[in-house]
């Protein structure tokens, strides 16, 4: 039986942090655990099969964490799984009550809001790129085939911008989760 699996673009499938956590947890109950989470895990994440475990996973966005960030989580018994860009992944094994890292509504909302802010940065870059390529395609004095290339690039960037925009709306709708 295969004991290794790679999941592609998992982050983009489960954009709502709470849903992403559940995805990890369901895999853990069937014995699948991430081998390593790093910079490119949002594109491809390797999982390995071992014992099924009841884990509580937590994802947290911290662009500029302070020195005591990791220490605080570790003091509370959380295990550091890894981080992708500025998104930290933590987990904790439990038996009865599912542990929470964000124990009140306002800090949970703040966590989700940090994800929206992080996505908005990429969103802005994609929107500006779309406009820049479009401007070149329309106003430059390039040949028509070159213009077409810029037009295609513009369309591609627009697709990404729309996807990121939709992701932000989805998180906003689930801000309390």
């Amino acid at each position: 039986m295969k004991n290794k699996k790679i999941f592609f673009f998992s982050v983009f499938k489960y954009v709502v942090p709470a849903e992403y956590e559940q995805w990890f947890e369901e895999l853990a109950t069937t014995g699948w655990h991430p081998a390593k989470i790093g910079q490119f895990s949002s594109i491809a994440m390797r999982f390995e099969k071992s014992e099924p475990r009841k884990y509580r996973y937590v994802v947290d966005m911290q662009a500029t964490p302070k020195k005591n960030y990791k220490q605080t989580y570790e003091d509370f018994g959380w295990e550091y799984v890894g981080k992708m860009a500025s998104a930290y992944v933590w987990r904790k094994e439990y038996t009865n009550e599912r542990p929470e890292s964000f124990s009140d509504n306002s800090s949970l909302k703040a966590r989700n809001h940090r994800f929206i802010v992080a996505i908005s940065v990429s969103f802005t870059i994609f929107v500006l790129s779309t406009l820049a390529f479009l401007a070149v395609a329309i106003f430059s004095d390039l040949s028509s085939s070159e213009r077409l290339q810029f037009g295609i690039a513009s369309a591609l960037f627009l697709v990404f911008a729309v996807l990121l925009g939709l992701a932000m709306i989805k998180i906003k709708k689930n801000i309390d989760k």
Binding site: V58, N68, D75, S101, R111
Partner: peptide, 14 residues
Amino acid sequence: RIVLGAGTIYQSLG
């Protein structure tokens, strides 16, 4: 009744 989580504590102390 109130069991503060790590994320909440870190955020609030900050």
